[in-house]
Write a protein that binds this DNA or RNA. Structure first.
Length: 260
DNA sequence: AATTAATCCAACCGCAATACG
DNA sequence: ACGTATTGCGGTTGGATTAAT
């Protein structure tokens, strides 16, 4: 038995939002809030949209403090760092970037950042075993950012892990060469909590569990056979994560991801 | 100037998790 | 405890725009 659809698709408007629809939705939510129910919201607002569509429009475009436009070098670094450690959890990654939405981050990664990293890495002409995110980032800047992990450990059974890492850089940058300073300290604590403090902002969040893909991340010390295909941009998510994390220590799970 | 290819990004879709009766 | 409704998320699609030929 399948699920009942969230709305009557035949009578629901689809496609791009008009300025009038935007204004209606924005005005209503600012006045009354969502009422805790997106499904019934369109009717109240007077829109023929699906509730999910309204929610997405609000979250990705209409809500206050949404930031559009170019990503900064600091944001690039945070995305790379988090992608390497938690994979494509765009909502978590976006939560670390003020004003960015998961959709934004996802699009940016898929269309630009991934390619930049891969092409950067390709131009480095290093042996696969020598490639780390650190080296990629270092290669992109004159004054190298430094990354380090300390006291990391990982426990399989209950999904918890502990550890911390810090990074800092002066000048920068991953892509543009614009000057900036960034520093951050992050720590993994107790029951898979991940707390960050940095000079961009402070965000706390909790991982509920760690999945298999991340287990590979923490323990990966395996072969990189097949990683370097004919097309430098033709990688899957796993390959990219592996690429970023390649050179993980083979002796223990400490110091994973970043070299000293 | 016209056509084609590549890129970007808003929006949709379906699934899993969560809330609720 | 169970079934249904709703929410949140990540993957994918498709139209608009830009670049190349």
């Amino acid at each position: 038995m399948g699920r009942s659809p969230c709305c009557d698709k035949a009578s629901v408007k689809k496609g791009p939002w008009s300025p009038e629809e935007d204004a209606k939705l924005k005005e209503y939510i600012e006045k009354h809030g969502t009422g805790g129910n997106w499904i019934t919201l369109p009717k109240k607002v007077g829109l023929t949209r699906c509730g999910k569509s309204c929610r997405l429009r609000w979250l990705n475009y209409l809500r206050p403090n949404i930031k559009h436009g170019e990503f900064t070098d600091s944001e690039d670094k945070i995305i790379c760092t988090l992608f390497a450690s938690i994979g494509s959890r765009w909502s978590i990654i976006a939560s670390k970037l003020q004003g960015r939405t998961d959709n934004d981050v996802k699009n940016y990664w898929n269309t630009k950042l991934k390619k930049k990293i891969m092409s950067m890495n390709h131009s480095v002409e290093m042996k696969p075993q020598q490639v780390t995110l650190s080296s990629i980032l270092q290669n992109s800047t004159k004054s190298s950012p430094s990354f380090s992990f300390t006291d990391s450990s990982y426990h399989h059974s209950n999904g918890s892990f502990t550890g911390s890492f810090s990074y800092s850089s002066t000048s920068s940058s991953l892509l543009s060469g614009n000057s900036s300073t960034s520093a951050a300290q992050e720590s993994f604590i107790g029951d898979a909590s991940f707390v960050q403090q940095n000079n961009i902002g402070s965000v706390n969040y909790i991982y509920s569990e760690v999945e298999d893909s991340e287990k590979l991340m923490f323990s990966n010390a395996g072969s990189v056979n097949g990683l370097w295909g004919e097309n430098p941009l033709d990688y899957g998510i796993d390959e990219i994560k592996q690429l970023i994390s390649t050179n993980t220590s083979t002796s223990s799970c400490n110091n994973f991801l970043f070299d000293d």
